[in-house]
Each structure stands twice: as structure tokens, then as C-alpha cells.
Amino acid sequence: MKFIVFLKMVPDVIEELKIADDGKTLDSNWIRMKLSECDENAVEEAVILKEKFGGTVTAVALDAPELDDALFNALAKGADKAVKIVGEWKDVRSPAIAEIFAKYLRDNYPIDNQTLILSGSQSIDDIEGELVYYLGELLNLPAFGVITHVDYDAGQNRISLVKEFAGGLRGEFESEVPAVIGIQAAEKPPRYIPIAKIRAIMKSASIEEVEIPLDGIPSGAVIDKLFEPETSGKAEMLEGSTDEIIEKLIGIFSDKGII
């Protein structure tokens, strides 16, 4: 099997997010980028599938700050090849990213009936929706999202997928290969890779760079402004020393008849 995983860096929301002076973008000086969480699960699932069914894993991502670390991490986990896509495009979102990845595939990675395309099911900046479905449309392949389990029947060359709905209800789907799969959570939590192993990979492996030109990349929806949510009338913050806070908490629980 040939597993290709498309990855994206997103701002780490654990950090403070500041809006830039243009009022329309995040201030890049304040942002720490990290691999989108579902994408991290997509890498893990691709490596799990390779271990189970054999094949190769290629990790492909758009150029972004901190990306090299994420790609070396994918190599250390078991990916066979890492590709960084560079180009003139800026602030691209799912429809444009799908176009860039589809162009990459057309010129560099022929899709056949042994190819499975994986990516994260969603990301925190998917203002125009999820990548996997745009990619499915461009490649004319079936696309599935919110997937938490993938199985492969080599005899039939078919995959079986588990998708999450709501309230713990899930559904089983079956598809031919090739297909595009949006991973919500890998079968197991993403494996931890010791830093020494990543350093070793950085010495022995390299990241391939591929340029995709700007032509034909859709510009996407125009953001008028970004702003922070209003916080008025929301949580009453309990302040003071730890002991004082705890007295207040116990007071609230007691008033509300909890204790």
C-alpha cells in the first residue's frame, strides 16, 4: 500500500493569540505553530496501517514555521519520505490547500488502486471547511471524515472505516481504494518519540522540497475582521490565595446544595 499523509501547521491555542494590526490576520510574532492535532493522528494512523499491511508512508505539508520539526518527527515515527511544499501563496485555506495538494499529486505521486490518502479530519482554522472533502472532489475520489478506525481487506482491495456521529454512536462504512480519509483519532494515541531519535533522523534523512506555483490557486473567502469574543457577563472569577479560593468554592457548592 502507498499511504500519503497531508499535513498542516496551525497556531498553538495554548499560547495567547493576538490579532495583527491589519485586523484580519493573527499576529505572527505571537504565534507558535504546531502540527494540527487531527493531522498528528493521521500520521499515527498511516504508520499503524503500514505496520499492519506493509507499504510506504509519505508525509507532505505546506511550508510553515516549525514545519521541519514536525516532518522529522513523522520520519522518526515511521514515515519513509517527507516533502515540504513551497510557493508564493499566502494564508491559504482548505479549498486552496486542496488545489495545491492535488497539483502535487498530479506531478509527483501517481495515484493507483493501492493508494490511500490520509489527513486530519478537521482543524481549528477550517473556516472554509475540511480539506479531505475538497481533495476528494478535485481527485474524484470518495472522501470520508471523522474516522477513528481503518481496516484493509487486501483480497478485496477494500477499506472498512468507522466514523463517529454523536452521543457515542458510530457507523461503519466500506469503500474501494483509492480513497481520501479524514482521521479524527488514530487507533492508538500518537506515539512518543524520544528527542534523541528525532536528532538521529535529522542527521540521516532529509526533507524534499517541491515548489507549486501560484497559478490556479483559488483565493478563498475574504475575512473582513478578526476579533476576540466578548467576555462580559460570563464567569465570575474567584480570586485570592489558594485557601481563599477553596473557601469560596466550598461556599458556592454549599449554597447550590451540591454538598
Binding site: S94, S121, G129, Y133, Y134, V146, F165
Partner: peptide, 23 residues
Amino acid sequence: CTNTTAGVGPILSSKLKLPFLNF
């Protein structure tokens, strides 16, 4: 914007050539 309907927006956006806005 639910797991049940996920995917309809992006695919419809591709088919209708209309913008799709999420969340």
C-alpha cells in the same frame, strides 16, 4: 456543523462554486 453532515458543505461549495463558511 456536526459529524453527521460533515463534508456536505465543502463538496457542495466545489459543485456550486459558492463560498462555504464553517463554524
